[in-house]
Amino acid sequence: MAVTRGGREMVLYYSPEGNKNAAKLKGVLVRMGVRIRNVSEEQFGDTLGSLIGLEGFEARESAEKSGEAVGAIEREVLVMHNFSGNRIDELLLAMRRANVQKIDLKAIVTESNVNWSFYHLYEEIGAEHERMHQNANAKQ
């Protein structure tokens, strides 16, 4: 199943309650013409494919069907779809210029992860982020 179809750029975004970063980020995305889909706790078990509206994915294709455990997400998560490398760079620069606090957990929808639940992606990129920090600290 092809993930990128040349369609409009979209960001899946989850922000814990009370996060002041959300308004600044959404302003950046609106100025760039990027669609924003806020992910709610009820959607943590939904696949990335269903969240971005890919053909062939059920509206609520969820991890519950596979028995995957879904817990709480305590950090911001930003998932990009249909972004070129240049547009990712533009987004990151625009976020810095708008003083959006760094979002550590960022990902791109790929052929490999389109079937993952939002929660599974969160776990994977969270673990990867921790490994990078451990490696960086070990080198110091």
Results as ranks from 00 to 15, higher is better:
residue 1 M to Q: 05
residue 1 M to D: 09
residue 2 A to Y: 06
residue 2 A to T: 04
residue 2 A to E: 05
residue 5 R to G: 15
residue 6 G to P: 08
residue 8 R to Y: 01
residue 8 R to V: 10
residue 9 E to C: 13
residue 9 E to G: 04
residue 10 M to Q: 14
residue 10 M to P: 01
residue 13 Y to G: 11
residue 14 Y to V: 04
residue 16 P to Q: 00
residue 18 G to I: 01
residue 18 G to W: 00
residue 20 K to Y: 08
residue 24 K to F: 09
residue 26 K to S: 11
residue 29 L to F: 06
residue 30 V to G: 08
residue 30 V to M: 12
residue 30 V to E: 11
residue 31 R to H: 09
residue 31 R to P: 09
residue 31 R to K: 15
residue 31 R to A: 15
residue 32 M to Q: 11
residue 32 M to A: 08
residue 32 M to H: 02
residue 33 G to N: 02
residue 34 V to S: 06
residue 34 V to A: 08
residue 39 V to K: 02
residue 40 S to T: 13
residue 42 E to L: 13
residue 42 E to C: 12
residue 43 Q to A: 10
residue 44 F to M: 03
residue 45 G to L: 03
residue 45 G to V: 03
residue 49 G to P: 00
residue 50 S to K: 02
residue 52 I to V: 15
residue 52 I to P: 02
residue 53 G to K: 01
residue 53 G to A: 05
residue 56 G to Y: 01
residue 57 F to R: 11
residue 57 F to A: 07
residue 58 E to K: 14
residue 59 A to G: 11
residue 60 R to Q: 13
residue 63 A to P: 03
residue 64 E to L: 12
residue 65 K to C: 10
residue 65 K to F: 11
residue 65 K to Y: 10
residue 66 S to H: 09
residue 67 G to L: 00
residue 69 A to E: 01
residue 69 A to T: 01
residue 70 V to W: 06
residue 71 G to N: 02
residue 71 G to T: 03
residue 71 G to L: 03
residue 72 A to T: 10
residue 72 A to F: 06
residue 76 E to M: 10
residue 76 E to D: 09
residue 78 L to A: 06
residue 79 V to G: 10
residue 80 M to C: 14
residue 81 H to N: 13
residue 81 H to W: 14
residue 81 H to L: 03
residue 83 F to A: 02
residue 86 N to W: 12
residue 87 R to T: 00
residue 87 R to K: 13
residue 89 D to S: 15
residue 91 L to P: 03
residue 91 L to V: 05
residue 93 L to K: 14
residue 93 L to M: 09
residue 96 R to F: 08
residue 97 R to Q: 14
residue 99 N to I: 06
residue 99 N to S: 14
residue 99 N to E: 09
residue 100 V to T: 01
residue 102 K to Y: 07
residue 102 K to N: 09
residue 102 K to F: 04
residue 103 I to R: 08
residue 104 D to K: 13
residue 105 L to S: 08
residue 106 K to M: 14
residue 109 V to W: 05
residue 109 V to M: 06
residue 111 E to P: 13
residue 112 S to G: 12
residue 114 V to G: 07
residue 115 N to E: 06
residue 116 W to D: 09
residue 117 S to A: 09
residue 117 S to G: 03
residue 120 H to S: 11
residue 121 L to D: 03
residue 124 E to R: 12
residue 124 E to T: 11
residue 125 I to C: 08
residue 126 G to C: 06
residue 127 A to E: 13
residue 129 H to V: 04
residue 131 R to H: 11
residue 132 M to H: 13
residue 132 M to T: 00
residue 133 H to E: 12
residue 138 A to K: 13
residue 138 A to P: 02
residue 139 K to H: 12
residue 139 K to P: 02
residue 139 K to G: 04
residue 139 K to N: 10
residue 140 Q to I: 15
